[in-house]
């Protein structure tokens, strides 16, 4: 068993030619972030109905006994 299976990351910078799975991300970071925010927004909209309406009271009431 060779070490290369774990070492792809370090080898890819060592000049053996480009690794096919080391291609740059297809979209620019800004576009990616916008996409992510959009997905998060739709998720937040979706869970809006189950979020505690009285957060202060809910947080105040969540009291546990210490354990291990």
């Amino acid at each position: 068993m060779s070490q290369q299976q774990f070492d792809r990351r370090r080898d890819s910078g060592a000049g053996d030619g480009p690794e096919p799975d080391a291609t740059p991300p297809p979209t620019a970071p800004a576009a990616q972030h916008a996409q992510r925010d959009e997905a998060l927004d739709s998720l937040l909209d979706e869970i809006d109905g189950v979020l505690e309406t009285n957060a202060t009271e809910f947080v105040h009431g969540f009291v546990q006994k210490g354990g291990q």
Partner: peptide, 26 residues
């Protein structure tokens, strides 16, 4: 972190806002 941070951006809630503490528990 990502979900709560996005909630915070949309709602203006800071890390001391009980809504974020509630989401953490929930």
């Amino acid at each position: 972190h990502q979900l709560l941070q996005r909630f915070s951006e949309r709602s203006g809630a800071g890390w001391d806002d009980p809504r974020l503490a509630a989401m953490d528990i929930q």
